[in-house]
Simulated scan of single mutants.
Amino acid sequence: MKTYIWIGIAGALGALLRTGIGVLIPHETGFPIATFSVNMIGTFLLCFLVTGVVRKISAATHFQDAITTGFLGSFTTFSALSMETVLLIENGELVMGALYIILSIIGGLAVGLLGFHFGQKKVAE
């Protein structure tokens, strides 16, 4: 039960931070930069933490789950990516929608690889 409470608390914090970033970053260009940014940051952090820091410090399972599933799971958002892409397409912005999907997939893979790379370096230290 303790694990679920920690996941819930961390999830609330991740959702609040994502919402705050969405408010702070204007999206007047039509490109959903706030969601793109949190997804890239969250992907990097998840890969970095899971590969390196969490393994190295042997954190308690409830702490690991709170950070990965709770905080980063609510901080990043596939549903917003999907909704924003559909809205771009519905508004006739096909190129922007395609660009958003392509950058999100390629960017996510790239920052994930970076996260794994730097996380593994942390383990080796």
Rank of each mutant, 00 (worst) to 15 (best):
1 M>A: 15
3 T>K: 12
7 I>W: 04
8 G>S: 15
9 I>Q: 14
12 A>C: 13
14 G>P: 03
14 G>A: 04
14 G>I: 01
15 A>R: 00
19 T>N: 08
20 G>L: 04
20 G>K: 01
21 I>L: 05
22 G>E: 03
23 V>T: 05
24 L>D: 07
24 L>H: 02
30 G>D: 09
33 I>W: 07
34 A>M: 02
36 F>A: 06
38 V>M: 07
40 M>S: 07
45 L>M: 07
47 C>G: 06
48 F>S: 01
51 T>A: 14
61 T>K: 13
61 T>F: 13
61 T>P: 15
63 F>M: 14
64 Q>Y: 05
68 T>R: 02
69 T>R: 03
69 T>Y: 03
70 G>N: 04
71 F>Q: 02
72 L>N: 01
72 L>Q: 01
79 S>Q: 06
80 A>F: 04
80 A>R: 01
80 A>L: 07
82 S>V: 08
84 E>R: 00
85 T>E: 11
86 V>I: 14
86 V>G: 11
90 E>W: 03
91 N>A: 12
92 G>L: 08
93 E>A: 09
95 V>Q: 13
96 M>W: 05
97 G>W: 00
97 G>Q: 06
100 Y>F: 11
102 I>L: 15
103 L>Y: 06
103 L>N: 06
106 I>A: 11
108 G>I: 01
111 V>D: 06
114 L>N: 04
116 F>S: 14
116 F>G: 12
116 F>K: 09
120 Q>G: 13
122 K>I: 15
123 V>C: 15
124 A>M: 13
124 A>S: 15
124 A>Q: 11
